[in-house]
Design a protein around this nucleic acid. Structure first.
Length: 425
RNA sequence: GGCGCCGUGGCCGAGUGGUUAGGCAGCGGCCUGCAAAGCCGCGUACACCGGUUCGACUCCGGUCGGCGCCUCCA
């Protein structure tokens, strides 16, 4: 299996099974309901784990919740903790409704503050960080490889509003002193405060995956500064940290990035409720994970149609696939997890067992579950069949419309006057 | 300005130095009482300009355009 890595700009080979493969996928900062784009790294992580396990890998997937962050204080002044708790619940519920199961670990930053403090202390001891007035900053100048992941040379980084506490404008906060309007804090050697944004990931990854692991995932928009800073913190302490950096492409809405700050957001909840989880998943399948994908009327409708097509194949008779069918599917996924390619292979299949096995990798086996029409719909369909038998087609068509208006479609089965009832697409 | 990704037929979207991607939509046909579903057939696409090559959509260079990041962002 090969995966494209931001760090090397190449596809990197995974070690042979069983690995082990440690995966860390950056989760959300919890201050609002997650939107569809936020779900992309989660979905990719769950699919990758699913595929790798089916290939005999021993995978551990960590997906964090960042529940300490400036955004949360801003969104709920004086009530940041309750907001973080609520938004965490939303996230867990919404992602659970995708039907892909749970990551192996879902650590919260707030539960690892002692470890975070210890980590920062080590950085300070070794001269990679310094404390000033209750803040602690990472000393970028102490880490010569800074910028390697993102390709940003330190000198090119634009200066923001200068912070007089920093030795160097590029330095970033590991620990921030408590401010009067911040209602959650922890005690530390530097006084009351809370962790900065990037440190929690370094610590959680190390706690659960060890100092070196295979894959680090997350949105492409996190490469700089978030991941660059994570690398700096961890490698400055001699940890190898992640080997492959798998950054998923951004979700766009009308050509622009979908983001909470732009406000052009469809929440994951809304998408699932409106289109169904299968459509949302197939939508993600239609684009390569590393490329941007547009969330539009057309693309979602096409995904819905594809899902419906798979349902139809599973409603028809199964026919055996050629012997190399699965191998072609596997080859597509093994080459940088090429799901559009894998989909194309799947569309050739009429073999129920094979198709279900492939759909199962993506949590889509439920496409085979045929909804049972309620009794009254069934009765209408029987009446229609009777009307057809007496060649009363006016009545038959009226009944078909009646059934249609109640959300079901009748399909006549060729030959024997039998019928099939399927939910209206 | 710096770093990076990308430009494929109406739409989405793989891929390859010379051979059918696939899906959606559309058109024609078969099937059907009519439909639906299915099946069969139909589109000679690879931003532009140069170069390399026997041959480039695929390699190289340039141009134009889009997108992301440059310490809020999955």
């Amino acid at each position: 299996m090969r995966l494209y890595s931001t760090l090397s700009h190449r596809k990197e080979e995974l070690p042979p099974p069983p690995g082990p493969v440690g995966m860390y996928v950056c989760g959300p900062t919890v201050y609002a309901r997650a939107h569809v784009g936020n779900a992309r790294p989660f979905v990719l992580g769950m699919w990758l784990r699913s595929w790798l396990r089916s290939q005999g890998y021993d995978v551990t997937l960590v997906h964090n919740i960042t529940d300490i962050n400036d955004k949360i204080y801003e969104a709920a002044p004086g009530a940041s903790a309750p907001l973080a708790e609520r938004a965490t619940r939303w996230y867990l519920e919404d992602t659970a409704d995708l039907g892909l199961g749970m990551p192996d670990h879902v650590p919260k930053a707030s539960e690892l503050v002692p470890q975070i403090v210890a980590f920062i202390e080590q950085l300070v001891e070794r001269g990679h960080a310094y404390a000033v007035e209750g803040d602690v900053y990472f000393r970028v100048a102490s880490y010569p490889e800074y910028g390697r992941l993102s390709g940003q040379r330190p000198d090119d980084v634009e200066e923001q509003e200068p912070n007089p506490l920093k030795e160097d404008p590029r330095d970033f906060a590991l620990w921030k002193a408590n401010k009067p309007d911040e209602d959650t804090w922890w005690d530390s050697p530097w006084g009351r405060g809370r962790p900065g944004w990037h440190i929690e990931c370094s610590v959680m990854a190390e706690e659960l995956l060890g100092p070196a692991f295979e894959i680090h995932g997350g949105g492409l928009d996190l490469v700089f500064p978030h991941h660059e800073n994570e690398v700096a913190q961890s490698r400055a302490l001699g940890r190898e940290f992640a080997r492959i950096w798998a950054h998923n492409g951004i979700l766009r809405f009308t050509g622009e990035k979908m983001s909470k700050s732009l406000g052009n957001v469809t929440t994951l909840r809304e998408a699932i409720d409106e289109y169904g989880r299968e459509t949302v998943l197939v939508f993600f399948l239609t684009g390569h994970w590393s490329k941007p994908i547009d969330f539009s009327e057309e693309t979602v409708r096409a995904a819905q149609a594809r899902a419906e097509r798979f349902r139809d194949v599973l409603r028809a008779a199964s026919e055996p696939a050629p012997p190399d069918a699965w191998q072609r599917f596997a080859a597509a996924l093994d080459d940088d997890f090429n799901t559009p390619q894998a989909l194309a292979v799947m569309h050739e299949w009429r073999d129920h067992d094979l198709l279900l096995r492939a759909l199962g990798v993506f949590g889509l086996a439920a496409l085979a579950a045929e909804a049972e029409a309620p009794e009254e719909i069934r009765a209408l369909a029987e009446q229609r069949a009777a009307a057809r038998d007496r060649r009363d087609f006016g009545e038959a068509d009226r009944l078909r419309e009646e059934i249609e208006s109640r959300g079901w479609t009748v399909r006549d089965v060729a030959g024997d006057g039998g019928f099939q009832l399927v939910p209206r697409a």
